[in-house]
Design a protein around this nucleic acid. Structure first.
Lengths: 194, 194
DNA sequence: GGCGATGGTAGACAGTGTCTATGCAGGAGG
DNA sequence: CCTCCTGCATAGACACTGTCTACCATCGCC
């Protein structure tokens, strides 16, 4: 009975986003999305020739949401770089753990059209923010900022996944993510200045 | 026809291991494994009540292989801890990239029975090796070795995944994994002693 | 020699993604 | 006004999938 008649294409994406955040990746079958959008199982094909393209469009929405969340957390960006990186890290992991289904989808490359326009582009700005912050925070001489940013990203991503599955709770014996996040930042930014 | 008549159970696992390392996770359907093992699609059910249990047994084999590979690389363990951690990291990422399908399966928690006996247990020894090496390499005072090991593991895992998908080549502009691995180790172990 | 248990077969069922044929609306052109 | 034609959705088919169930062959054992 929703009358937001913005076209089927947008509705399919919206339904998909709700579905993946509420029920996870497994619920994202093409037919289920079509059902919840109130159309037949063949209808999505006109806008998304293949299942992967629909999922890619949904994942693209996830990258946009992550970017918005991080931007919101960073605010006007007047804090010192190290504090901003801490905030960014917390926001990144917060998003990943608050939207596990969506975060999983965003990195399930077997479910995504790697050539999908806007997928790679959707994640690049965030990477550049990290690179810039690392430069401003000061790196040891001779360290490529992009390498440092890539390594930091990998660490955050690994943290998000392993923590989300409970593996790190088991191995480290920690019930809180916070100490792991702090240790990560200290490793990549050097010890906290006193 | 097959002479190695060690029972269907072992044969299914062996076929699965070959299949996942050669054709990837998507090829691991129950029916395909049964087909390649030369039995009907209902046969595996007697040994593995569900598809996930068969996949878990295959993944378990992967953890064993990873552990063996790392142990082989570490040798007698007489090198200094830092060199051993470098070797371990190289072996870990080498395994992950040489056996992408298997590595992917090992961390596809939606395909694995999380209660599967021996799955968690299969990955714990490796974690303890890392913890011990970190202790022997020397940590800054007040740092929990298990936390440090967890963070390092997360970094290696993230590196393996993001590099395997080509994301890091794109963002960092690096064509080689080695500088990323070196940066990772320097971050977690401190700068290389001169 | 019958007999139960072990281990595999084969068919059904609901579900999936893709493809194809069908239909139905509405508007343009004659 | 009537006729096409195009845009968009429907519905059925097909080849798959994992699971369940009924069947059956082969073997050891009493």
């Amino acid at each position: 009975m929703q009358e937001d008649d913005e076209g089927l294409r947008a509705r399919l994406i919206k339904v998909g986003v709700e579905l993946v955040t509420r029920e996870g990746t497994q619920a994202l079958s093409l037919r289920e999305i079509a059902r919840r959008a109130g159309v037949s199982h063949g209808a999505p094909r006109r806008y998304f020739p293949t299942h992967l393209e629909l999922l890619s469009a949904i994942a693209r929405e996830g990258f946009a949401a992550l970017g918005a969340e991080v931007a919101r957390a960073l605010g006007d960006g007047r804090a010192d770089p190290r504090a901003q990186l801490t905030t960014l890290g917390r926001a990144y992991l917060g998003f990943a753990l608050a939207n596990r289904g969506m975060y999983e989808l965003m990195f399930r490359h077997d479910l995504l059209e790697s050539n999908h326009l806007g997928l790679r582009e959707a994640s690049l700005p965030l990477f550049h923010v990290v690179t810039d912050l690392l430069i401003r925070a000061g790196l040891r001489p001779g360290v490529d900022p992009r390498i440092a940013a890539g390594v930091l990203w990998a660490n955050a991503h690994g943290l998000a996944q392993l923590w989300g599955w409970g593996s790190l709770q088991l191995t480290t014996g920690s019930a809180e993510l916070e100490p792991l996040l702090r240790a990560t930042l200290e490793a990549h930014l050097g010890p906290e200045p006193r």
